[in-house]
Write a protein that binds this DNA or RNA. Structure first.
Lengths: 201, 201
DNA sequence: GCGGACTGAATGACGATTCATTTTTCTACG
DNA sequence: CGTAGAAAAATGAATCGTCATTCAGTCCGC
């Protein structure tokens, strides 16, 4: 019966999350009214409170939900990369940028809102985000073990730096939608920059 | 007379900006009450409106004010660097990180609030931020002209990536105050990562 | 005692959340 | 089947707290 309930629920819950994503991407968390999310999702204001404790909870749930999806995607794409570590790094960067075109709202939400609220950045531990970093970190560490990546760099630091670079470039890409930037070219350049920076000499 | 007014004013205006910086760094823009800023600055609530149009204006003014300072500082420090482009890049990174220890509030404010409001990221053009990027961009372009930096990378893209990396690492540094990270070591590693990535082969 | 700087209590708007009511879905019985 | 009645889900108007902002009054330098 929990199943039956869920079956119904999930539809509406999902619609609320989608509405929230669209609204947050457009106007930011604090400038979005709960009633706007409701109308975007095609439900009544009160309905939102049947699925989420409050507006903050909605933000966190949305972030968790989408990041989980991104991370799964990243994991599975990485798994099917044939070739060396550097190919994998290239793939991470590619996927990251691909988001900007495939899922503009999501990209905007993540880049802009990730740092949004004090709650988000400080209180809330943000495990999903850590997961993402760890994927990069492990890749670098693996390369170091193999001897193809210089081992005088801290893999943790590198993963941060790399994420930051990707995030910032993505932000730029997201906000200046019009500009017909060549995403492939960008991917190649950023990947190359890091690969050359990381290679053992 | 505008001068006389300013002379008096500047003291109070400055105190308000400082109070705002402290408060915003601690709780973020939207969670900070105007009355908190006022009490932090030791003025009455209403006084703030003698110096700033409204809360948004206060945010923008604060950002402009501090970024201008950072940029001037960066320019003058760069001017006195003897040596090649790569030394200068090292210095940018060093200054960026030095902020985290010297001016924790400012660092937190810039990293967290830079992307804060939709207003900030989208509507407001954010010239100061562009100025910062241009400094990096010109440095890279110069290196390319000299032939020491590979010219198959877009200097604009690189400046974005580099800023993103610095910003993210700084964010980390800022939020995890306790952790006795070795700032010098971090500077060296990040600088090296980019320098190796940028060098002509 | 005039004029501008300052004060802080009062105002008013706004918007998250609640909850009395309505609608839908489910259950069980003829 | 069809239907009555109960339970669950959904609604949206009303509530209630929270501030940003204002402005009538006070203070101070000249």
């Amino acid at each position: 019966m929990a199943e039956a309930k869920r079956a119904q629920s999930s539809d509406k819950r999902q619609r609320i999350l989608e509405g929230a994503l669209k609204a947050f991407a457009r106007k930011g968390f604090y400038n979005t009214k709960v009633s706007e999310i409701a109308s975007e999702a095609g439900v009544a204001d009160g309905t939102i409170y049947l699925y989420f404790k409050n507006k903050d909870d909605l933000l966190i749930s949305l972030f968790e939900d989408r990041m989980e999806w991104v991370i799964e995607r990243l994991r599975s794409e990485l798994a099917e990369v044939e070739g060396d570590i550097f190919k994998k790094i290239h793939r991470i960067i590619e996927l990251h940028f691909r988001l900007a075109t495939d899922q503009a709202d999501l990209a905007e939400f993540i880049t802009v809102e990730l740092r949004q609220s004090a709650k988000f950045v400080k209180e809330y531990k943000n495990q999903r985000f850590v997961d993402y970093l760890v994927i990069i970190e492990e890749l670098v560490a693996e390369g170091q073990k193999e001897g193809v990546i210089r081992d005088d760099v801290d893999s943790r630091l590198v993963s941060r730096a790399m994420f930051g670079a990707l995030d910032e470039v993505l932000l730029q890409l997201t906000l200046s939608k019009a500009a017909g930037m060549d995403v492939e070219r960008m991917t190649a350049q950023v990947a190359d920059l890091f690969v050359e920076g990381l290679k053992s000499r």
